[in-house]
């Protein structure tokens, strides 16, 4: 850790500690992990911007069906490329200490593919498609499934989930908080 310590000043670390759900040590540890993705780049510039393909080499993100969405949501340049600060933000949201509401907020953005602030049927279809991977549901099954989801969650019957509705489900889902988590 000695090497990475020299890359951050005390104020920067204090900033990171205040602005994320991490302690200073965890910030440094996160930086180690980040550095491991592209040692040559990060070695020169601790806050280097790594392309999305590099970020997706992080094991948990690589196999995650929503990996690219996660990168895009957290990327400050919105193209999926992440700096260390973006990465730190990401890990902070996925950490144990982050409250459910914060996680729900980001999950909503991840699932909202078309960015219209609603999770509509097309978004749901994409989510399901990504979840089942190489398997395939027939059109009728997919429709049935989406209809079921909307039946459960769409309180105002407008055919899409707003954030309030999404948060409502997340509140009741006991698995969400434990699933939406990446151990550093």
């Amino acid at each position: 850790m000695g090497q990475s310590k020299s890359q951050f000043s005390e104020e920067e670390l204090q900033d990171y500690e205040d602005l994320t759900y991490f302690t200073k040590k965890e910030v440094l540890y996160a930086h180690q992990k980040f550095k491991a993705l592209a040692p040559e780049k990060v070695g020169h510039n601790k806050n280097a911007k790594l392309p999305m393909s590099k970020i997706l080499q992080y094991p948990e993100l690589g196999v995650n069906p929503f990996g690219d969405r996660i990168c895009k949501v957290f990327s400050s340049s919105h193209d999926g490329d992440c700096t260390f600060e973006d990465f730190l933000d990401m890990m902070s949201v996925f950490s144990d200490a982050a409250p459910k509401a914060v996680k729900a907020e980001h999950a909503f953005r991840i699932f909202d593919f078309d960015g219209d602030d609603m999770i509509g049927t097309s978004d749901l279809q994409q989510v399901v498609d990504r979840l089942i991977g190489s398997n395939h549901l027939s059109e009728a099954e997919m429709q049935h499934l989406i209809q079921k989801i909307l039946e459960e969650a769409d309180l105002d019957d407008d055919g899409a989930l707003s954030f309030a509705e999404f948060e409502h489900i997340i509140d009741k889902s006991s698995d969400f908080a434990s699933a939406f988590r990446i151990r550093l």
């Binding site: 948990e60 699932f111 989510v127 979840l131 989801i149 889902s173 969400f176 988590r181 990446i182």
Partner: peptide, 9 residues
């Protein structure tokens, strides 16, 4: 659907 994937995998 929303809590099915373990992000830690």
């Amino acid at each position: 659907i929303f809590g099915g994937w373990d992000f830690c995998i």
